[in-house]
Every structure is written in C-alpha cells, then in structure tokens.
Write a protein that binds this DNA or RNA. Structure first.
Length: 583
DNA sequence: GCCGTTTTCGGCCCGACTGTTTTCAGTCG
C-alpha cells in the first residue's frame, strides 16, 4: 500500500467537515474537523509517521477522536466514518461547492429536493425554473447561480501575486486620489504575501463612506458590481478578480486594516487572547467583552497599537498565519524582519546565451541600477535543449566573458560565473565535476522526468546535493503556480540532507514559482539550512522579483543571517571559495 | 469535536449584504 500523504489526510478531514455541515451537524464540530485539516497541513514534523505510530498526543486541536481517525486513515488507507458519510453523495456533488453563492445549506437543499449531483445538472435546473421554485431560493438566486457557473468556466479563482500587486497599486492610486479618502491601504492575502491571491481587499478611512463606495462601484476598473452597500462594495475587475472595499472612520481604520489583513486563523487566535483580557475585538475596535463600563478600553492609534494592547510585539502581516507568531510575539521571539533592501545580490539568472531575453551586459546593467553589488549568471545546461542550454564549449566562452567584465567593471558590480545544471533522471548532473570546478558556483535543478514517484525524486535530489560542486538546489519542487503541481518530494528528508551536505536551498522568487514553499522555511532554518533568494530572471525587469522574494522569505520566518544574498560581496566570495564540507 | 489563568461542562468570533422573507437564513470574508 502506498502511504497516504499529509494533503490527503487534510482533504479527507475537510470533506468530513463539509458533509457534516450539509447534514446540519453542530457547527463547532465541523469547525473542529476543518481546523484539524489545517493543523495536519501545517504541522512541522512528519505527521504521517506520527499518525502511523499513534503518537499524535499533544498536538493542539487534534483530540482523541481525530487522533483515532487519522491513525485509521494512515494505517488502513481508509476511514470508515468518512466512507459512510460520503456514500450518500455522488462524486459530482462536491463540485457544487465551487459555485459562488452556494454553501452547505443550499447545496444540501439542491441535492435533497432536486437530486442535483453536478454543475451540469445545476445549470439545467436553473434553466428550467426548478431551482427558482425551491423554498429559500428564487428567480434572482437562479440567475446568479447561472452567472457564477459561467464565470467559473472563464476565470481562475486565484491570481498571481505580482499581477495582483500591480492591480492593487493602480486601485490604491485611484482611491487615494478621491477627495473623500483620508487613508487607503490594501489588506488581505496580498498584504500577507501569499503565493497566490484570491480577492483584493482595500480599506479606506473616510468621513463620507457612501461617496467612496459609490466611487468604487462606478470606477473605470469595475467591470461588474457584485455588492454595493453604504460601507462595503465588491466589484469584479476585467480579469475576473474580485476587489472589496471597506469604508471606515479614521478611528476604526487600524482595526479594519488588521481584521481584513487576516488570516482568519490569526484573527481567531487574537480574539481569544483579547477575550482573556476582558476585551472583545472586531473590525471596528475594542469593547468590554461583558459590556460593563468598568473595563478599561485601550487607546489605539495604529495597527501596532492593537498588538501592543494585547501585550504583543508587532506582528508583520507576512507572519499572520497562526503558525506560532502570537506565541513568539508574546515572548519577544519574532524573527527580525527581512527587507528587500537587505539583499546585496542574487544567483539564479539567465541571459540570451540560453533562454533569457537580455545579454550579459544588459542583465549586469539592470542589476547595478537596482543597487546590487553582485549578480550570478546561471544559464541552462545542454540537457535543457528546449531552453538552448549551453554545452561545455559555450559555457567556457561565457565564463571568459564574465571574467572579462569583472576585469573591466568589477568595482561597480561583480559577476559570478555559474550554471543552472540539469539534474538528470538518476540524480547525476549534466556537467562533469571537472567542468563544474571551473565555475564560481552551481545551481542544480530538475527540468525533466517530473513523474517519478516521491522516493525516486527524493533520491535524485539527494544525490545532486551530495555533489561537492552543487552550491544550491533550484526550484525544489518544480511547481508552476496555478498551472502545474509540484513533483513529489519528501521535504523533511531533503531539508535534513541540505543541512548535512551544506547545500543551499533556493527560494525561487519568480512569482510563477515561489519554490520552496514558504511553509517549509522555518523548519529548514532551524535545521541550519541556508537560503538564497533568486528571481530566476529571464529579463532585466525580473530582477525586481527580489522584492517579492524578501516578503516571502519573511513569511517563512527567515532572518537576514539565514539568507546568503544578504551578505556582502567579500563574504560571499569567501563562502564560495570555502570547500562545501567546511562551509 | 476541542479545550481549560473564571471552566472537565459549557462555551466555541462576528458583522455586512442579499434575497426571500414579513423578521430572517445563508453566504462571505
């Protein structure tokens, strides 16, 4: 039996929560399953192994019942409780939840009353009027459901971080330009630097909320108005992405900003903490939780003040995922924040020699203009023929050109000669050790045979890490966000191996990738693994991805000292000159 | 189903908006 994965356990728990909800079970029970799923996804240690060995005791949020169910799932590959719940529903039933406007109650009614079991069946039922006749539904609901079905076909539900950031900046500019706006900020998952973004969230301080929501609803970037009230307005942009505005007073602004930045889990934890201090916290402010006049309500001027009132250090938005940040803020142990200005150079970049769109000189100039002190060139190796990978001869010529640049311009920007060498199917490399020894450093990446199973893929990467010339592993899982899944790797083993072999793991901050995923960096850091933040730039402008990279690194709890490219040129030269085993 | 610095029982975050309703349920964030 192939072992069940962490994601699969979480998926089953989520599905149980959904099914219990449809059946109208105790909402707190469904929440317990949903939280269980989150905990399984986020847990630091190898939770599958713990479950197999019945050692789940002491994980907060996983009580006796969930422990037993997860154990059953891992050891038998099935969960009887889940099967029984699921048996009543066909596979297509679950896709109904993907339709905007349909929650557990409505899906339950559609299935119970009309026997609907797929989006296709729902479309037909909306068309023939049977949905509109259902109690609790109506003509308007039916037509909204039809629109939502169409929209789902046309647009992805999530968007890239860089594209979302650009859209948000334009909207913020428009909001800031309105005379009724006192302050405007974006919030939500964008502010938390998640790898992909759902809706865009905006908070504006104003004394004329109605004017502002009306402006938002009528703005040129609003291709459709979804909801429009006195203080809240949701619109859809041309690309299908939803944008929400909340208009609040100046006094409410920090609370609204905090609240709508989330994450939901972070906020729930923060609210429980407030309650223990006799305070109720919502998006408008603090109140006495028992309504009494005796409780002192803290004065708050900005978001920082909210955390201060709760006895916490300020928690940067990136860390607000309820993964231990509140405890760390309580004990003064939050990581020192890493900023993009701390980055002095970067290592994984391409030129026209392989599949880049700019010459060595153009890339170097862009790096210097960005204020970097050094730039590593790592073009593809020959096995990546689709990317015009370099053979030994062309590589040697490029190395010579780089040395030449340094002789001429080395006082302004230093170039490192490297390669992004292919890790072949068996874990060997596309260049010999002798060839690699002529370079300053080496990024090793997988670009082929994506379908190997987890064991083989992990072994392949381990073998690459064991090579003394491999400085760092590029895009560890090969994922292309919103398009291609990560290949199967055992992160725990690879992190351990990177620590042992002194191999750096790249944080590929090309917004298509953000790979390795931010959820693993804290563990890597604690094992002593060094990170390099690399844009995988194929054009000069893509060096700017370093800004996003620093935010994602902060999200992964990385500190400056955990990141190679926060070091100055001399330190980096010394690092690369030191044999790997002694680094 | 989970949890415990008021608790091993009795709580568990909460407000805006919409549509279908005559006072509220459902969804969303």
């Amino acid at each position: 039996m192939t072992e069940i994965s962490r994601d699969e356990i979480a998926r089953v728990l989520d599905e149980i929560a959904l099914l219990l909800e449809v059946r109208g079970e105790n909402p707190f029970k469904t929440r317990a399953y949903r939280q269980g799923a989150e905990i399984v996804r986020d847990h630091d240690a190898d939770i599958v192994a713990l479950a197999r060995d019945n050692e789940l005791d002491g994980i907060k949020g996983i009580g006796k019942a969930l422990q037993e169910k997860i154990h059953e799932l891992v050891t038998t590959g099935k969960l009887e409780f889940h099967r029984k719940l699921r048996d009543d529903y066909p596979d297509g039933f679950f896709e109904l939840f993907e339709i905007e406007g349909l929650g557990p109650k409505k899906v339950g009614a559609l299935h119970r009353e009309l026997g609907l079991d797929s989006i296709d069946a729902l479309r037909k039922a909306c068309d023939d009027g049977s949905v509109a006749d259902l109690s609790g539904f109506g003509k308007k609901t039916a037509s909204k459901l039809l629109e939502a079905i169409q929209r789902r076909e046309h647009f992805a539900e999530r968007y890239r971080l860089d594209e979302s950031a650009a859209a948000a900046e334009a909207i913020l500019d428009a909001l800031a330009g309105h005379p009724a706006t006192l302050l405007a900020r974006s919030a939500g998952s964008l502010r938390r630097s998640r790898e992909t973004i759902g809706d865009l969230d905006f908070i504006a301080a104003t004394s004329q909320p109605k004017e502002l929501t009306a402006f938002f609803a009528g703005a040129p970037f609003a291709s459709e108005v979804i909801v429009h009230g006195d203080t809240k307005c949701s619109i859809r942009l041309d690309n299908g992405q939803q944008a929400d505005l909340r208009a609040v007073s100046m006094e409410q602004f920090p609370f609204a900003l905090q609240y709508f930045t989330g994450s939901k889990e972070h906020n729930v934890a923060l609210r429980s903490r407030a309650l223990r201090q006799g305070l109720s916290l919502n998006e408008y402010g603090f109140t006495a939780s028992d309504g009494s006049a005796g409780t002192a309500i803290p004065e708050v001027e900005d978001e920082r003040g909210i955390y201060k009132a709760l006895g916490l250090d300020f928690i940067p938005p990136e860390l607000r995922e309820n993964r231990g940040e509140i405890e760390a803020a309580d004990s003064g142990e939050l990581p020192e924040p890493i900023h993009w200005e701390n980055l002095r150079g970067t290592f994984h970049n391409h030129t026209t020699a392989s599949d880049g769109h700019a010459s060595l000189e153009e890339m170097a100039t862009a790096a210097r203009d960005l204020g970097l002190c050094y730039l590593g060139i790592a073009d593809h190796s020959k096995a990546s023929f689709q990317a015009n990978g370099l053979d030994e001869e062309r590589l040697a010529a490029q190395v010579e050109a780089i040395r030449g640049w340094n002789r001429e311009h080395g006082d302004g920007l230093w170039l490192f000669a490297g390669t992004e060498v292919d890790i072949l199917k068996d874990g060997s490399l596309d260049f010999s050790d002798d060839t690699l020894a002529t370079l300053d450093y080496c990024v090793a990446s997988i670009h082929s045979s994506f379908t190997l199973d987890e064991k083989e893929m992990t072994r392949r990467l381990v073998r690459a890490m064991e090579n003394e010339h491999v400085t760092m592993i590029g895009h560890l899982t090969g994922r292309i966000l919103l398009r291609r899944d990560a290949y199967a790797v055992n992160h725990e083993k690879l992190i351990d191996c990177a620590a042992e072999t002194r191999t750096i793991i790249e944080l590929n901050c090309n917004p298509k990738r953000f790979d390795m995923d931010w959820r693993w960096w804290r563990r890597a850091r604690d094992k002593g693994v060094l990170c390099s933040i690399n844009p995988d730039a194929h054009r000069p402008g893509q060096l700017q991805f370093l800004r996003l990279g620093a935010s994602v690194a902060a999200k992964g709890w990385l500190r400056r000292r955990d990141v190679l490219n926060t070091r100055g040129l001399d330190e980096v030269k010394e690092y690369l000159d030191t044999p790997k085993a002694r680094r």
